[in-house]
């Protein structure tokens, strides 16, 4: 069970948080990270338009069968998983458009619940922090600490 890294992409496509938990990914320059985030953001937006007619199922790559009927189920969701032989990128988009990208090993189970928990930590320690400005890079000590606590306990 290895979680490599977490990216948070603002709704404008900027990389606002970048954290590595486990070494294993080859390091890129910070410029490349920004480009990766920007490209993913663009690709996500385009795949959202690719989505079949509303009534049909969402993107076939989304592995989440939703049990409860929700007004949002028929919303086009865009790309959710990218997988290679050595790692996997899972994307979770909040209703407000912020995207969480989690880099894990391909066989990592329950990525969904990990992302959901990270979203919870984000809404607690970032959104409830008076000194954080939305859409700006995240520098919150307690968010870092709680992420560490959560991810390290699980791996």
């Amino acid at each position: 069970m290895v979680v490599f890294a977490l990216f948070i992409i603002s709704k404008a496509g900027g990389l606002i948080y970048n954290r590595e938990f486990h070494s294993g990914l080859t390091k890129l320059t910070s410029n490349d990270y920004l480009m990766l985030a920007g490209s993913f953001h663009g690709m996500h937006a385009i795949t959202k338009q690719l989505c079949p007619v509303p009534a049909a199922a969402i993107n076939p790559t989304s592995g989440v069968p939703s049990l409860a009927p929700s007004p949002f189920t028929s919303r086009p969701s865009g790309i959710e998983v990218l997988e290679s032989s050595h790692f996997r990128i899972q994307c979770f988009q909040t209703l407000t458009g912020t995207k969480f990208l989690l880099f894990t090993e391909p066989q990592q189970p329950n990525v969904d619940s990990v992302l959901r928990r990270i979203y919870e930590l984000y809404s607690d320690y970032v959104m409830k922090n008076p000194f954080y400005t939305v859409e700006m890079p995240i520098r919150c000590e307690k968010f870092d600490r709680s992420l560490d606590g959560f991810v390290k306990v699980r791996s």
Binding site: K128, P130, F131, K142, F143
Partner: peptide
């Protein structure tokens, strides 16, 4: 509980 102080305001306690 949810407050992280920015570095330039580390003297502050809310």
């Amino acid at each position: 509980q949810y407050i992280s102080l920015p570095r330039e305001m580390s003297q502050l306690n809310c």
